[in-house]
Design a protein around this nucleic acid. Structure first.
Length: 427
RNA sequence: GGAGGAGUGGCCGAGUGGUCGAAGGCAGCGGUCUUGAAAACCGCCGAGCGCAAGCUCCGGGGGUUCGAAUCCCUCCUCCUCCGCCA
Protein backbone atom coordinates (compact mmCIF):
# COMPACT_ATOMS: atom_id res chain seq x y z
CA UNK A 1 0.00 0.00 0.00
CA UNK A 2 1.30 3.34 -0.97
CA UNK A 3 2.24 5.54 1.97
CA UNK A 4 -0.10 8.57 1.72
CA UNK A 5 2.97 10.71 2.40
CA UNK A 6 4.41 9.50 -0.92
CA UNK A 7 1.47 10.60 -3.09
CA UNK A 8 3.52 13.24 -4.88
CA UNK A 9 6.32 10.80 -5.69
CA UNK A 10 4.01 8.31 -7.36
CA UNK A 11 3.20 10.94 -9.99
CA UNK A 12 6.63 10.24 -11.54
CA UNK A 13 5.05 7.21 -13.11
CA UNK A 14 3.02 9.52 -15.33
CA UNK A 15 -0.05 8.30 -17.20
CA UNK A 16 -3.36 8.39 -15.40
CA UNK A 17 -1.88 8.06 -11.92
CA UNK A 18 -2.50 11.78 -11.26
CA UNK A 19 -6.26 11.41 -11.57
CA UNK A 20 -6.25 8.38 -9.27
CA UNK A 21 -4.26 10.27 -6.65
CA UNK A 22 -6.66 13.24 -6.80
CA UNK A 23 -9.66 10.93 -6.48
CA UNK A 24 -8.19 9.21 -3.46
CA UNK A 25 -7.32 12.51 -1.78
CA UNK A 26 -10.86 13.84 -2.16
CA UNK A 27 -12.30 10.64 -0.75
CA UNK A 28 -9.85 10.59 2.13
CA UNK A 29 -10.83 14.15 3.03
CA UNK A 30 -14.47 13.07 3.25
CA UNK A 31 -13.49 10.01 5.21
CA UNK A 32 -11.66 12.02 7.83
CA UNK A 33 -14.52 14.48 8.22
CA UNK A 34 -17.08 11.69 8.69
CA UNK A 35 -14.77 9.88 11.09
CA UNK A 36 -14.53 13.04 13.19
CA UNK A 37 -18.30 13.45 13.33
CA UNK A 38 -18.84 9.81 14.13
CA UNK A 39 -16.23 9.82 16.86
CA UNK A 40 -18.01 12.80 18.44
CA UNK A 41 -21.31 10.90 18.50
CA UNK A 42 -19.65 7.82 19.85
CA UNK A 43 -17.96 9.81 22.60
CA UNK A 44 -21.40 11.19 23.57
CA UNK A 45 -22.87 7.71 23.62
CA UNK A 46 -20.02 6.33 25.69
CA UNK A 47 -20.42 9.09 28.26
CA UNK A 48 -24.20 8.65 28.39
CA UNK A 49 -23.89 4.91 28.75
CA UNK A 50 -21.53 5.36 31.64
CA UNK A 51 -24.05 7.61 33.40
CA UNK A 52 -26.76 5.09 32.64
CA UNK A 53 -24.94 2.22 34.22
CA UNK A 54 -25.26 4.07 37.53
CA UNK A 55 -29.02 4.68 37.27
CA UNK A 56 -31.65 2.49 38.80
CA UNK A 57 -33.01 0.41 35.96
CA UNK A 58 -36.58 0.88 37.20
CA UNK A 59 -36.38 4.65 37.49
CA UNK A 60 -38.17 6.98 35.04
CA UNK A 61 -34.80 8.70 34.42
CA UNK A 62 -33.46 5.42 33.10
CA UNK A 63 -36.39 4.96 30.75
CA UNK A 64 -36.18 8.43 29.28
CA UNK A 65 -32.42 8.30 28.96
CA UNK A 66 -32.77 5.02 27.12
CA UNK A 67 -35.22 6.51 24.63
CA UNK A 68 -32.88 9.42 24.00
CA UNK A 69 -29.91 7.16 23.51
CA UNK A 70 -31.82 5.01 21.11
CA UNK A 71 -32.00 7.97 18.73
CA UNK A 72 -28.31 8.67 19.13
CA UNK A 73 -27.53 5.02 18.60
CA UNK A 74 -29.49 5.00 15.37
CA UNK A 75 -27.55 8.01 14.17
CA UNK A 76 -24.28 6.27 14.99
CA UNK A 77 -25.32 3.15 13.09
CA UNK A 78 -26.13 5.23 10.04
CA UNK A 79 -22.81 7.03 10.37
CA UNK A 80 -20.97 3.75 10.69
CA UNK A 81 -22.64 2.40 7.58
CA UNK A 82 -21.79 5.52 5.58
CA UNK A 83 -18.24 5.54 6.84
CA UNK A 84 -17.82 1.84 6.06
CA UNK A 85 -18.85 2.52 2.46
CA UNK A 86 -16.45 5.46 2.15
CA UNK A 87 -13.65 3.52 3.78
CA UNK A 88 -14.14 0.55 1.49
CA UNK A 89 -14.07 2.84 -1.51
CA UNK A 90 -11.05 4.74 -0.23
CA UNK A 91 -9.02 1.65 0.61
CA UNK A 92 -9.98 0.09 -2.72
CA UNK A 93 -8.63 3.18 -4.48
CA UNK A 94 -5.49 3.12 -2.35
CA UNK A 95 -4.95 -0.58 -3.09
CA UNK A 96 -5.07 0.22 -6.80
CA UNK A 97 -2.41 2.94 -6.60
CA UNK A 98 1.06 1.75 -7.63
CA UNK A 99 4.22 2.19 -5.63
CA UNK A 100 6.25 5.40 -5.89
CA UNK A 101 9.44 4.92 -7.93
CA UNK A 102 12.75 5.70 -6.23
CA UNK A 103 14.46 8.91 -7.33
CA UNK A 104 17.25 6.85 -8.97
CA UNK A 105 14.82 5.14 -11.36
CA UNK A 106 15.14 6.54 -14.90
CA UNK A 107 12.01 8.20 -16.23
CA UNK A 108 10.56 6.66 -19.35
CA UNK A 109 7.40 5.30 -20.89
CA UNK A 110 8.53 1.78 -21.78
CA UNK A 111 11.46 -0.63 -21.87
CA UNK A 112 13.29 1.45 -24.45
CA UNK A 113 14.15 3.84 -21.58
CA UNK A 114 15.72 1.10 -19.44
CA UNK A 115 19.45 1.51 -18.90
CA UNK A 116 22.10 -1.20 -18.96
CA UNK A 117 23.89 -1.37 -15.60
CA UNK A 118 26.53 -3.84 -16.76
CA UNK A 119 27.22 -6.82 -18.97
CA UNK A 120 28.80 -10.02 -17.63
CA UNK A 121 30.85 -12.37 -19.77
CA UNK A 122 31.28 -12.42 -23.50
CA UNK A 123 28.84 -13.36 -26.17
CA UNK A 124 29.69 -16.98 -27.01
CA UNK A 125 30.62 -17.59 -30.63
CA UNK A 126 29.60 -20.59 -32.71
CA UNK A 127 30.98 -21.93 -35.94
CA UNK A 128 27.49 -23.13 -36.82
CA UNK A 129 24.02 -21.62 -36.77
CA UNK A 130 22.85 -21.80 -33.10
CA UNK A 131 19.41 -23.33 -32.67
CA UNK A 132 16.53 -22.17 -30.52
CA UNK A 133 15.95 -24.28 -27.42
CA UNK A 134 12.61 -25.57 -28.69
CA UNK A 135 14.31 -27.17 -31.67
CA UNK A 136 17.27 -28.41 -29.63
CA UNK A 137 15.11 -29.73 -26.82
CA UNK A 138 12.73 -31.57 -29.10
CA UNK A 139 15.60 -33.08 -31.09
CA UNK A 140 17.23 -34.27 -27.86
CA UNK A 141 13.89 -35.73 -26.75
CA UNK A 142 13.93 -33.78 -23.46
CA UNK A 143 11.28 -31.08 -24.12
CA UNK A 144 7.92 -32.64 -25.02
CA UNK A 145 5.62 -29.78 -25.97
CA UNK A 146 3.01 -32.06 -27.54
CA UNK A 147 2.64 -34.14 -24.41
CA UNK A 148 2.16 -30.97 -22.35
CA UNK A 149 -0.69 -29.93 -24.62
CA UNK A 150 -2.23 -33.41 -24.51
CA UNK A 151 -2.22 -33.48 -20.71
CA UNK A 152 -3.01 -29.88 -19.75
CA UNK A 153 -3.31 -27.72 -22.87
CA UNK A 154 -1.33 -24.87 -24.35
CA UNK A 155 1.59 -23.42 -22.38
CA UNK A 156 2.29 -26.61 -20.48
CA UNK A 157 5.35 -28.72 -21.23
CA UNK A 158 6.56 -32.14 -20.18
CA UNK A 159 10.25 -32.31 -19.29
CA UNK A 160 11.80 -35.68 -20.04
CA UNK A 161 15.05 -37.30 -19.04
CA UNK A 162 17.89 -34.79 -18.81
CA UNK A 163 15.53 -31.77 -18.70
CA UNK A 164 13.73 -33.28 -15.72
CA UNK A 165 17.03 -34.11 -14.07
CA UNK A 166 18.29 -30.60 -14.79
CA UNK A 167 15.22 -29.12 -13.11
CA UNK A 168 15.76 -31.14 -9.94
CA UNK A 169 19.47 -30.35 -9.98
CA UNK A 170 19.04 -26.64 -10.59
CA UNK A 171 16.64 -26.27 -7.67
CA UNK A 172 19.14 -27.87 -5.31
CA UNK A 173 22.10 -26.05 -6.84
CA UNK A 174 20.47 -22.64 -6.44
CA UNK A 175 19.17 -23.20 -2.93
CA UNK A 176 22.57 -24.49 -1.79
CA UNK A 177 24.25 -21.45 -3.32
CA UNK A 178 21.94 -19.03 -1.49
CA UNK A 179 22.00 -20.87 1.82
CA UNK A 180 25.78 -20.67 1.58
CA UNK A 181 25.64 -16.87 1.72
CA UNK A 182 23.13 -16.58 4.55
CA UNK A 183 19.63 -17.25 3.23
CA UNK A 184 17.26 -19.39 5.28
CA UNK A 185 15.59 -22.10 3.26
CA UNK A 186 11.81 -22.62 3.31
CA UNK A 187 9.43 -24.89 1.41
CA UNK A 188 6.05 -23.12 1.29
CA UNK A 189 2.54 -24.16 0.19
CA UNK A 190 1.81 -23.73 -3.51
CA UNK A 191 -1.69 -22.44 -2.83
CA UNK A 192 -2.38 -19.10 -1.19
CA UNK A 193 -5.28 -17.14 0.25
CA UNK A 194 -6.64 -13.93 -1.19
CA UNK A 195 -5.25 -11.94 1.74
CA UNK A 196 -1.72 -13.12 0.97
CA UNK A 197 -2.02 -11.94 -2.63
CA UNK A 198 -3.37 -8.62 -1.43
CA UNK A 199 -0.41 -8.33 0.90
CA UNK A 200 2.15 -8.61 -1.86
CA UNK A 201 0.15 -6.54 -4.35
CA UNK A 202 -1.07 -9.08 -6.93
CA UNK A 203 -4.62 -8.36 -5.76
CA UNK A 204 -6.96 -6.66 -6.22
CA UNK A 205 -5.56 -5.40 -9.50
CA UNK A 206 -4.26 -8.52 -11.23
CA UNK A 207 -6.81 -11.23 -10.50
CA UNK A 208 -7.06 -12.00 -14.24
CA UNK A 209 -3.41 -13.16 -14.16
CA UNK A 210 -4.11 -15.81 -11.53
CA UNK A 211 -5.59 -19.30 -11.39
CA UNK A 212 -8.34 -19.39 -8.77
CA UNK A 213 -9.48 -22.72 -7.39
CA UNK A 214 -13.15 -23.45 -8.07
CA UNK A 215 -14.23 -24.93 -4.76
CA UNK A 216 -17.86 -25.58 -3.84
CA UNK A 217 -19.32 -22.37 -2.43
CA UNK A 218 -22.20 -22.10 0.01
CA UNK A 219 -24.51 -19.09 0.36
CA UNK A 220 -22.26 -17.68 3.08
CA UNK A 221 -19.20 -17.89 0.89
CA UNK A 222 -16.58 -15.34 1.90
CA UNK A 223 -14.28 -14.25 -0.95
CA UNK A 224 -11.54 -13.82 1.62
CA UNK A 225 -11.41 -17.60 1.83
CA UNK A 226 -10.82 -18.02 -1.90
CA UNK A 227 -7.71 -19.97 -2.83
CA UNK A 228 -5.33 -19.33 -5.71
CA UNK A 229 -2.37 -21.11 -7.24
CA UNK A 230 0.57 -18.94 -6.29
CA UNK A 231 2.15 -17.01 -9.18
CA UNK A 232 5.48 -16.70 -7.33
CA UNK A 233 6.99 -17.78 -4.01
CA UNK A 234 7.36 -14.07 -3.27
CA UNK A 235 3.73 -14.28 -2.10
CA UNK A 236 4.25 -17.15 0.33
CA UNK A 237 7.60 -16.07 1.69
CA UNK A 238 6.70 -12.40 2.15
CA UNK A 239 3.50 -13.41 3.94
CA UNK A 240 5.54 -15.65 6.21
CA UNK A 241 5.66 -12.55 8.40
CA UNK A 242 2.31 -10.92 7.64
CA UNK A 243 0.88 -9.28 10.78
CA UNK A 244 4.23 -9.72 12.46
CA UNK A 245 6.37 -7.26 14.38
CA UNK A 246 10.11 -7.94 14.25
CA UNK A 247 12.00 -6.96 17.36
CA UNK A 248 15.03 -4.71 17.35
CA UNK A 249 18.07 -6.52 16.04
CA UNK A 250 16.20 -9.29 14.19
CA UNK A 251 16.63 -7.58 10.81
CA UNK A 252 17.69 -8.14 8.14
CA UNK A 253 16.17 -11.57 7.50
CA UNK A 254 16.80 -13.32 4.19
CA UNK A 255 14.95 -16.34 2.83
CA UNK A 256 15.08 -18.51 -0.24
CA UNK A 257 12.38 -20.85 -1.40
CA UNK A 258 11.58 -23.07 -4.31
CA UNK A 259 7.97 -23.18 -5.45
CA UNK A 260 6.10 -24.04 -8.60
CA UNK A 261 4.54 -20.88 -10.05
CA UNK A 262 1.25 -20.61 -11.89
CA UNK A 263 0.21 -17.75 -14.14
CA UNK A 264 -2.86 -17.52 -16.30
CA UNK A 265 -0.97 -15.23 -18.71
CA UNK A 266 -4.24 -13.64 -19.78
CA UNK A 267 -3.58 -11.19 -22.55
CA UNK A 268 -0.29 -12.83 -23.50
CA UNK A 269 -1.81 -14.92 -26.27
CA UNK A 270 0.35 -14.77 -29.36
CA UNK A 271 3.56 -13.83 -27.56
CA UNK A 272 6.24 -16.37 -26.74
CA UNK A 273 4.01 -19.22 -27.77
CA UNK A 274 7.00 -21.39 -28.68
CA UNK A 275 9.26 -23.01 -26.20
CA UNK A 276 9.66 -22.77 -22.45
CA UNK A 277 9.75 -18.99 -22.03
CA UNK A 278 6.13 -18.29 -21.10
CA UNK A 279 4.30 -21.17 -19.44
CA UNK A 280 1.22 -21.46 -17.24
CA UNK A 281 3.33 -23.46 -14.79
CA UNK A 282 7.02 -23.00 -14.15
CA UNK A 283 9.58 -23.51 -11.44
CA UNK A 284 11.48 -20.80 -9.63
CA UNK A 285 13.77 -20.31 -6.66
CA UNK A 286 12.92 -17.02 -5.02
CA UNK A 287 14.88 -14.75 -2.67
CA UNK A 288 13.05 -12.53 -0.16
CA UNK A 289 14.44 -10.05 2.36
CA UNK A 290 12.91 -8.18 5.27
CA UNK A 291 15.09 -5.19 6.14
CA UNK A 292 15.19 -1.90 8.03
CA UNK A 293 14.17 0.98 5.70
CA UNK A 294 17.48 2.83 5.84
CA UNK A 295 19.31 -0.26 4.56
CA UNK A 296 16.98 -1.34 1.77
CA UNK A 297 18.87 0.16 -1.17
CA UNK A 298 22.16 -1.34 -0.01
CA UNK A 299 20.30 -4.65 0.41
CA UNK A 300 18.91 -4.32 -3.12
CA UNK A 301 22.44 -4.26 -4.52
CA UNK A 302 23.40 -7.33 -2.46
CA UNK A 303 20.26 -9.13 -3.58
CA UNK A 304 21.06 -8.34 -7.22
CA UNK A 305 24.56 -9.73 -6.71
CA UNK A 306 23.13 -12.88 -5.12
CA UNK A 307 20.91 -13.46 -8.14
CA UNK A 308 23.74 -12.65 -10.56
CA UNK A 309 25.97 -15.17 -8.78
CA UNK A 310 23.74 -17.97 -10.06
CA UNK A 311 24.34 -16.99 -13.68
CA UNK A 312 28.03 -16.37 -13.09
CA UNK A 313 28.53 -19.74 -11.43
CA UNK A 314 26.80 -21.39 -14.38
CA UNK A 315 28.97 -19.38 -16.77
CA UNK A 316 26.00 -17.82 -18.57
CA UNK A 317 26.50 -14.55 -20.43
CA UNK A 318 23.98 -11.94 -19.29
CA UNK A 319 23.40 -8.24 -18.72
CA UNK A 320 21.72 -6.31 -15.94
CA UNK A 321 19.32 -3.49 -16.71
CA UNK A 322 17.73 -0.84 -14.52
CA UNK A 323 14.05 -0.63 -15.34
CA UNK A 324 12.57 2.82 -16.02
CA UNK A 325 9.46 4.29 -14.38
CA UNK A 326 7.25 2.99 -17.19
CA UNK A 327 8.57 -0.57 -16.96
CA UNK A 328 8.79 -1.29 -13.22
CA UNK A 329 5.95 -3.35 -11.81
CA UNK A 330 2.95 -1.97 -9.94
CA UNK A 331 4.49 -2.86 -6.58
CA UNK A 332 8.11 -1.94 -7.16
CA UNK A 333 10.04 1.18 -6.19
CA UNK A 334 13.12 0.04 -8.11
CA UNK A 335 13.85 -3.03 -10.20
CA UNK A 336 16.85 -4.60 -11.88
CA UNK A 337 16.24 -7.25 -14.51
CA UNK A 338 18.87 -9.85 -15.28
CA UNK A 339 18.70 -10.70 -18.95
CA UNK A 340 20.43 -13.83 -20.19
CA UNK A 341 21.80 -14.17 -23.70
CA UNK A 342 19.90 -16.57 -25.96
CA UNK A 343 21.98 -17.16 -29.11
CA UNK A 344 19.25 -19.27 -30.73
CA UNK A 345 17.01 -16.19 -30.69
CA UNK A 346 19.82 -13.64 -30.99
CA UNK A 347 18.56 -11.61 -28.02
CA UNK A 348 18.67 -11.10 -24.26
CA UNK A 349 15.70 -12.45 -22.26
CA UNK A 350 14.65 -11.69 -18.69
CA UNK A 351 15.64 -14.51 -16.36
CA UNK A 352 15.45 -12.73 -13.02
CA UNK A 353 13.81 -9.61 -11.64
CA UNK A 354 15.16 -8.05 -8.46
CA UNK A 355 13.14 -5.36 -6.69
CA UNK A 356 12.92 -3.14 -3.68
CA UNK A 357 9.29 -2.65 -2.66
CA UNK A 358 10.20 -0.34 0.19
CA UNK A 359 7.19 -0.27 2.57
CA UNK A 360 4.59 -0.93 -0.14
CA UNK A 361 4.07 -4.62 0.62
CA UNK A 362 4.89 -4.27 4.31
CA UNK A 363 2.07 -1.75 4.76
CA UNK A 364 -0.38 -4.05 3.01
CA UNK A 365 0.72 -7.20 4.81
CA UNK A 366 1.39 -5.41 8.12
CA UNK A 367 5.00 -6.49 8.43
CA UNK A 368 6.62 -4.22 10.99
CA UNK A 369 9.61 -3.87 13.26
CA UNK A 370 10.79 -1.87 16.23
CA UNK A 371 14.03 0.00 15.62
CA UNK A 372 14.73 -0.19 19.35
CA UNK A 373 12.99 -1.82 22.29
CA UNK A 374 9.95 0.22 23.25
CA UNK A 375 9.75 2.10 19.95
CA UNK A 376 6.56 2.33 17.95
CA UNK A 377 6.39 -0.33 15.23
CA UNK A 378 7.21 0.86 11.70
CA UNK A 379 6.77 -0.91 8.38
CA UNK A 380 9.82 -2.89 7.26
CA UNK A 381 11.07 -2.75 3.71
CA UNK A 382 10.69 -5.92 1.65
CA UNK A 383 12.73 -6.98 -1.34
CA UNK A 384 12.69 -9.98 -3.57
CA UNK A 385 14.33 -11.41 -6.61
CA UNK A 386 14.21 -14.51 -8.70
CA UNK A 387 17.15 -16.60 -7.69
CA UNK A 388 16.39 -17.70 -10.45
CA UNK A 389 13.73 -18.99 -12.86
CA UNK A 390 14.46 -22.67 -13.51
CA UNK A 391 12.80 -23.11 -16.91
CA UNK A 392 14.49 -20.10 -18.41
CA UNK A 393 17.81 -21.27 -16.98
CA UNK A 394 17.37 -24.53 -18.85
CA UNK A 395 16.58 -22.50 -21.96
CA UNK A 396 19.80 -20.51 -21.49
CA UNK A 397 21.93 -23.59 -20.84
CA UNK A 398 20.54 -25.35 -23.91
CA UNK A 399 21.12 -22.36 -26.15
CA UNK A 400 24.47 -21.13 -24.81
CA UNK A 401 26.07 -24.55 -24.26
CA UNK A 402 24.88 -26.15 -27.50
CA UNK A 403 27.38 -27.92 -29.71
CA UNK A 404 27.61 -28.36 -33.47
CA UNK A 405 26.31 -31.93 -33.21
CA UNK A 406 23.15 -30.85 -31.36
CA UNK A 407 24.36 -32.05 -27.96
CA UNK A 408 24.58 -29.73 -24.94
CA UNK A 409 27.44 -29.50 -22.46
CA UNK A 410 26.35 -29.33 -18.81
CA UNK A 411 27.97 -26.40 -16.93
CA UNK A 412 30.69 -27.76 -14.64
CA UNK A 413 29.19 -26.30 -11.46
CA UNK A 414 25.94 -28.13 -12.11
CA UNK A 415 27.35 -31.60 -12.73
CA UNK A 416 27.46 -32.68 -9.06
CA UNK A 417 23.70 -31.95 -8.96
CA UNK A 418 22.81 -34.08 -12.00
CA UNK A 419 24.63 -37.26 -11.15
CA UNK A 420 27.83 -36.21 -12.90
CA UNK A 421 26.12 -35.73 -16.26
CA UNK A 422 28.56 -33.87 -18.51
CA UNK A 423 26.74 -33.75 -21.80
CA UNK A 424 23.15 -34.09 -22.92
CA UNK A 425 22.80 -36.23 -26.03
CA UNK A 426 19.86 -37.83 -27.78
CA UNK A 427 19.15 -41.07 -25.95
C1' G B 1 -15.96 -36.45 5.85
C1' G B 2 -18.52 -37.34 11.11
C1' A B 3 -18.88 -36.13 16.65
C1' G B 4 -17.36 -33.08 20.60
C1' G B 5 -14.32 -28.86 22.70
C1' A B 6 -11.81 -24.17 22.25
C1' G B 7 -10.10 -19.17 20.14
C1' U B 8 -8.69 -12.68 25.12
C1' G B 9 -2.45 -8.29 24.81
C1' G B 10 4.84 -11.09 22.99
C1' C B 11 3.37 -15.76 25.98
C1' C B 12 0.10 -17.98 29.87
C1' G B 13 -4.51 -16.69 31.76
C1' A B 14 -9.07 -14.11 34.55
C1' G B 15 -13.42 -11.96 32.97
C1' U B 16 -20.30 -14.67 30.99
C1' G B 17 -24.55 -7.79 29.50
C1' G B 18 -22.76 -1.77 32.02
C1' U B 19 -17.73 2.34 35.20
C1' C B 20 -13.22 -3.38 30.80
C1' G B 21 -8.41 -1.92 26.36
C1' A B 22 -9.48 -5.58 29.66
C1' A B 23 -7.29 -8.75 36.69
C1' G B 24 -3.07 -11.71 37.73
C1' G B 25 1.46 -14.13 36.20
C1' C B 26 5.74 -14.66 32.83
C1' A B 27 8.89 -12.20 29.44
C1' G B 28 10.77 -7.18 28.28
C1' C B 29 12.35 -2.00 29.63
C1' G B 30 13.82 1.78 33.47
C1' G B 31 15.24 2.46 38.62
C1' U B 32 16.77 1.25 43.96
C1' C B 33 20.32 -2.07 46.18
C1' U B 34 25.28 -4.41 44.65
C1' U B 35 32.42 -4.06 43.02
C1' G B 36 29.46 -6.66 39.10
C1' A B 37 25.60 -10.15 38.48
C1' A B 38 21.59 -12.73 40.73
C1' A B 39 17.68 -12.12 44.23
C1' A B 40 14.34 -8.59 46.33
C1' C B 41 11.59 -4.10 45.89
C1' C B 42 9.42 0.27 42.92
C1' G B 43 7.77 2.06 38.20
C1' C B 44 6.75 1.40 32.91
C1' C B 45 5.03 -2.02 29.45
C1' G B 46 -0.64 -4.08 22.96
C1' A B 47 -2.01 -1.99 18.16
C1' G B 48 -4.49 1.35 14.59
C1' C B 49 -6.89 6.24 13.19
C1' G B 50 -6.81 11.54 14.45
C1' C B 51 -3.39 18.17 14.90
C1' A B 52 -6.05 17.27 19.29
C1' A B 53 -10.16 16.09 22.27
C1' G B 54 -11.28 11.51 21.32
C1' C B 55 -12.49 6.98 18.70
C1' U B 56 -11.73 1.76 17.21
C1' C B 57 -9.82 -3.24 17.99
C1' C B 58 -10.96 -9.50 22.94
C1' G B 59 -10.16 -15.07 15.55
C1' G B 60 -13.21 -12.70 10.77
C1' G B 61 -18.11 -11.02 9.28
C1' G B 62 -23.25 -10.13 10.55
C1' G B 63 -27.25 -9.61 14.31
C1' U B 64 -29.86 -8.53 19.28
C1' U B 65 -29.47 -4.30 22.92
C1' C B 66 -29.63 2.37 25.26
C1' G B 67 -24.99 -0.58 26.08
C1' A B 68 -21.48 -6.79 23.78
C1' A B 69 -15.01 -9.72 25.30
C1' U B 70 -19.72 -11.54 27.51
C1' C B 71 -26.11 -13.32 24.08
C1' C B 72 -27.53 -15.19 18.78
C1' C B 73 -26.10 -16.55 13.50
C1' U B 74 -22.21 -17.61 10.20
C1' C B 75 -17.25 -18.34 8.43
C1' C B 76 -12.15 -19.41 9.65
C1' U B 77 -8.48 -21.69 12.72
C1' C B 78 -6.75 -25.01 16.52
C1' C B 79 -7.41 -29.40 19.90
C1' U B 80 -9.59 -34.56 21.01
C1' C B 81 -11.94 -38.99 19.05
C1' C B 82 -13.75 -41.77 14.60
C1' G B 83 -13.33 -42.51 9.23
C1' C B 84 -10.24 -42.01 4.84
C1' C B 85 -5.40 -41.29 2.87
C1' A B 86 0.32 -39.86 0.06
Amino acid sequence: MLDPARMDDVLRRGGDVGAAVAAWRALDETRRRLQGQLDGHRAARNAANERMSKLDKKSPEFASARDELKALSTKIKEGEATLATIEAESSQKLLLLPNAPDASVPVGADESANTVLHVWGDKPTYDFQPQAHWDLGEALGILDFEAGVRIAGARFTVLRGAASKLTRGLINFMIDLHVGVGYDEVWPPAIVRRASLRGTGQLPKFEHDLFRLALPEGPDHDPDNDLFLSPTAEVQVTNLYADHIFEAGELPRSFCAYAPCFRAEAGASGSDTRGLIRQHQFDKVELVKFVAPETSYAELEKLREDAERVLQTLGLHYRTVTLCTGDISFTSAKTYDLEVWLPGQDRFREISSVSNFEAFQARRAKIRYRAATGDKPRAVHTLNGSGIAIGRTIVAILEQYQQADGSVVVPAALRPYVGGLERIVRS
